[in-house]
Simulated assay, not measured.
Amino acid sequence: MGRTLRSILLVGAAISVAALLAGCGGLKPGNAKAMAPLKQETVSKLASLGSSPAAAMMVRIFKESSELEVWKQTANGSYKLFKSYEICAWSGVLGPKVKEGDRQSPEGFYTVTPGLMNPNSNYYLAFNTGFPNKFDRAYGRTGSDLMVHGDCSSRGCYSMTDESIAEIYALARESFKGGNASFQLQIYPFRMSAQNLAKHADNPNMSFWKDIKEGYDRFEISKAPVSWDVCNKEYVFDVPGGTALDALGSCPVTVAQNVPDTVKAKAAADEAAMAKEVANLADKAAKAAAEAQKLADEKAAAKARGEAIGSFFGGMFGGGAETGVIDPSKVAPIPLPRLHRA
Rank of each mutant, 00 (worst) to 15 (best):
S329P: 01
D283L: 15
V325G: 02
L116W: 11
A75F: 12
S154Y: 07
L68I: 07
I87D: 12
D327K: 06
L21C: 04
E41Q: 06
A275Q: 09
A301V: 00
G242H: 14
P119G: 04
A342Q: 03
A308M: 14
E214L: 15
V93D: 15
L125V: 02
A265M: 10
F82E: 07
L339C: 03
M35D: 13
V325Q: 05
N76I: 06
S66W: 05
L94Q: 02
A267D: 13
A290Y: 06
A321H: 05
N258E: 08
K80N: 02
L125H: 01
V70L: 03
S153G: 05
S48Y: 08
E167P: 00
C24K: 05
A18S: 08
D202I: 04
A273F: 04
E322D: 14
G108V: 08
K45S: 10
E220K: 04
A201I: 03
A126E: 12
A247C: 04
G2H: 13
F313W: 13
P337Y: 05
W71G: 02
N258Q: 08
G50N: 03
P119Q: 04
F312Q: 07
G314F: 07
Q104E: 09
M35P: 00
S52E: 15
T42S: 11
Y169V: 03
G249F: 11
P29E: 13
L5R: 13
F176K: 07
G140H: 10
G150A: 06
G320L: 04
L21M: 06
K276D: 05
R341D: 00
I8H: 10
K284E: 12
I221P: 13
A54Y: 11
V59K: 01
Y235L: 06
T4N: 15
P29T: 10
H340N: 08
Y188Q: 02
V17I: 06
A275D: 08
A300F: 12
D261C: 03
W90L: 11
L38K: 06
E234N: 10
I309M: 13
C251W: 01
L295W: 12
G179P: 03
S207R: 09
G108P: 04
A19F: 08
M57T: 01
P114L: 12
E214N: 09
P333F: 13
V17R: 05
A22Q: 03
H340P: 00
S16V: 04
L49N: 00
P119K: 07
H340V: 03
A224R: 15
M117I: 06
I221L: 15
F208S: 08
V11T: 03
M192N: 07
P96A: 09
A32Y: 14
N122C: 08
D145S: 15
G92N: 00
M316T: 04
L81Y: 08
G23W: 14
A170E: 13
A166K: 02
K28M: 15
E234V: 00
V230L: 06
A247E: 10
D238R: 00
S44D: 15
W90N: 10
S153L: 14
A286T: 04
A194Y: 13
P204I: 07
S154M: 05
A308Q: 15
I309T: 07
D238S: 02
R141N: 14
A14W: 09
V17P: 01
Y85V: 09
I165R: 04
I334D: 01
A247D: 09
E271Q: 02
R3C: 07
S329M: 09
G306D: 11
W209Y: 14
D229S: 14
L295P: 05
I165K: 03
M206D: 11
